[in-house]
Simulated scan of single mutants.
Amino acid sequence: MASGGWCWLRGLWAAGQPLFQGRALLVTNTLGCGTLMAAGDGARQSWEIRARPGQKFDTRRSASMFAVGCSMGPFLHYWYLWLDRLLPASGFRGLPNVLGKVLVDQLVASPMLGVWYFLGLGCLEGQTLGESCRELRDKFWELYKADWCVWPVAQLVNFLFVPPQFRVTYINGLTLGWDTYLSYLKYRIPGPPAPPGCVALGTVQTELPHTATTCQPGQD
């Protein structure tokens, strides 16, 4: 049984290898990014549907996530090729260059992809550029701080141990959870606004009650 399972895995590996070679690699990376981003949104929507009775699955929302993910695939494909040429490294002997790759990735690619995400989805969903920019301003730093908590370690492993042709696929494999977070950040419902005159520690009446004007004795 074990031998049969091993042969099946070897056959699957052999069948899948052409997807990671030549021009097919670009297609694999592109569709992989789109599929995982849509899957992350699907996972998030499933949670929302359980938490919010009456909400239905929004296929258009997941389709927009798929489109934005596919648009990021070619960028990541060529970005890693460029990083390998800029800072060639092999294993722990090239650790200084590997650390340089991680730093460049965090300082350049991560903020670019964050901007791309919000502006791209805003465009697909009919937001004006001003609306998308306001949302980006409100949520970007929250996204970028979370990015620094997750991706430096993931990219260190990527650049140290993962063969170049599998780097985008490795990232895509990790991004299912990350894409769920991106969907949450984009589509979360803000809390209800405070009633007029309310502050954090109590309620303040900001206007005097309206009363009819009466004339006192002695007044004109």
Rank of each mutant, 00 (worst) to 15 (best):
183 S>T: 01
93 R>S: 15
161 F>I: 10
134 R>T: 12
146 A>Y: 05
154 A>Q: 09
106 Q>M: 02
120 G>E: 14
148 W>E: 15
89 A>S: 04
196 P>L: 01
100 G>D: 10
145 K>N: 09
136 L>F: 03
75 F>T: 13
182 L>S: 03
173 G>R: 02
162 V>D: 06
119 L>C: 14
122 G>R: 05
182 L>F: 03
137 R>K: 10
77 H>G: 02
96 P>G: 15
180 T>N: 07
161 F>R: 00
160 L>H: 04
151 W>E: 02
183 S>P: 08
72 M>S: 15
123 C>S: 07
186 K>I: 08
184 Y>V: 09
142 E>S: 06
122 G>F: 07
121 L>C: 07
99 L>K: 10
88 P>C: 06
111 P>I: 11
138 D>V: 00
178 W>R: 00
99 L>G: 08
149 C>F: 10
155 Q>T: 05
94 G>P: 09
72 M>K: 07
163 P>K: 09
97 N>S: 15
95 L>F: 13
194 A>P: 04
71 S>V: 11
132 S>L: 08
69 G>K: 14
109 A>W: 13
161 F>E: 02
146 A>K: 10
79 W>M: 04
144 Y>R: 11
141 W>C: 13
186 K>F: 13
182 L>C: 03
125 E>W: 01
191 G>L: 13
140 F>N: 09
67 A>Y: 11
68 V>K: 01
153 V>S: 10
148 W>P: 12
108 V>I: 12
156 L>G: 01
178 W>Y: 00
161 F>N: 00
105 D>V: 12
107 L>E: 07
93 R>C: 12
76 L>K: 11
82 W>E: 08
125 E>P: 05
162 V>N: 02
